[in-house]
Computed example of a mutant assay.
Amino acid sequence: MKPHLAKRSFSLAGHRTSVALEPAFWAALTAAAANRGLSLAALVAELDANRAPGTPLASTLRVFALGAHRAG
């Protein structure tokens, strides 16, 4: 059974893009953004700007969310 993905759209580096992640990852990212005093869009833009070339944005967001969740 395929996990349910939730899609969100953002403006990154002057263009629109969509990212599909599991709801648990969106929840972790939203909490991490709030903890930093950022909007979800601002956190995604920051992570996008700092990701390694060739790394998919969805992967970058999942890895960050996992790390933020582990850090508590």
Score class of each variant (00 low, 15 high):
residue 6 A to R: 14
residue 7 K to P: 00
residue 57 L to P: 08
residue 29 L to T: 08
residue 29 L to P: 09
residue 20 A to V: 04
residue 57 L to A: 10
residue 66 L to N: 10
residue 52 A to N: 11
residue 64 F to H: 13
residue 11 S to N: 13
residue 25 F to K: 01
residue 71 A to S: 04
residue 41 A to P: 00
residue 72 G to Y: 03
residue 4 H to M: 13
residue 43 L to F: 05
residue 71 A to H: 03
residue 59 S to H: 14
residue 68 A to N: 01
residue 27 A to D: 15
residue 16 R to E: 15
residue 3 P to I: 08
residue 29 L to E: 09
residue 64 F to T: 02
residue 26 W to Y: 07
residue 65 A to N: 04
residue 51 R to I: 04
residue 63 V to Y: 12
residue 23 P to G: 04
residue 36 R to S: 11
residue 53 P to K: 12
residue 60 T to N: 11
residue 13 A to P: 00
residue 18 S to Q: 07
residue 12 L to E: 05
residue 21 L to S: 02
residue 8 R to D: 03
residue 39 S to L: 09
residue 33 A to L: 08
residue 7 K to I: 00
residue 62 R to D: 06
residue 24 A to Y: 07
residue 28 A to T: 07
residue 1 M to D: 10
residue 38 L to Y: 03
residue 29 L to H: 09
residue 17 T to G: 06
residue 2 K to H: 15
residue 31 A to H: 10
residue 69 H to Y: 13
residue 41 A to F: 02
residue 11 S to D: 15
residue 6 A to K: 10
residue 39 S to D: 12
residue 31 A to T: 13
residue 10 F to W: 05
residue 17 T to S: 11
residue 72 G to L: 05
residue 55 T to Y: 09
residue 36 R to H: 12
residue 13 A to N: 10
residue 42 A to D: 14
residue 34 A to Y: 05
residue 48 D to H: 15
residue 15 H to D: 09
residue 51 R to Y: 03
residue 20 A to R: 03
residue 22 E to L: 01
residue 56 P to L: 12
residue 34 A to P: 00
residue 54 G to T: 09
residue 72 G to H: 09
residue 42 A to K: 07
residue 8 R to H: 07
residue 60 T to Q: 13
residue 35 N to E: 15
residue 8 R to L: 01
residue 34 A to E: 14
residue 23 P to S: 04
residue 70 R to M: 04
residue 30 T to N: 11
residue 21 L to Q: 01
residue 30 T to D: 14
residue 36 R to E: 15
residue 71 A to M: 03
residue 56 P to D: 15
residue 69 H to F: 11
residue 18 S to T: 09
residue 12 L to M: 04
residue 34 A to L: 10
residue 6 A to P: 00
residue 47 L to G: 10
residue 68 A to C: 05
residue 65 A to H: 06
residue 17 T to A: 14
residue 66 L to A: 13
residue 13 A to E: 13
residue 28 A to I: 05
residue 70 R to I: 09
residue 34 A to F: 06
residue 7 K to W: 05
residue 37 G to I: 04
residue 32 A to I: 04
residue 37 G to S: 06
residue 4 H to F: 15
residue 63 V to D: 13
residue 12 L to W: 05
residue 17 T to M: 10
residue 11 S to K: 14
residue 15 H to Q: 15
residue 11 S to R: 15
residue 25 F to S: 00
residue 25 F to G: 02
residue 34 A to K: 12
residue 56 P to V: 02
residue 45 A to W: 03
residue 71 A to W: 02
residue 39 S to W: 03
residue 8 R to N: 04
residue 28 A to W: 10
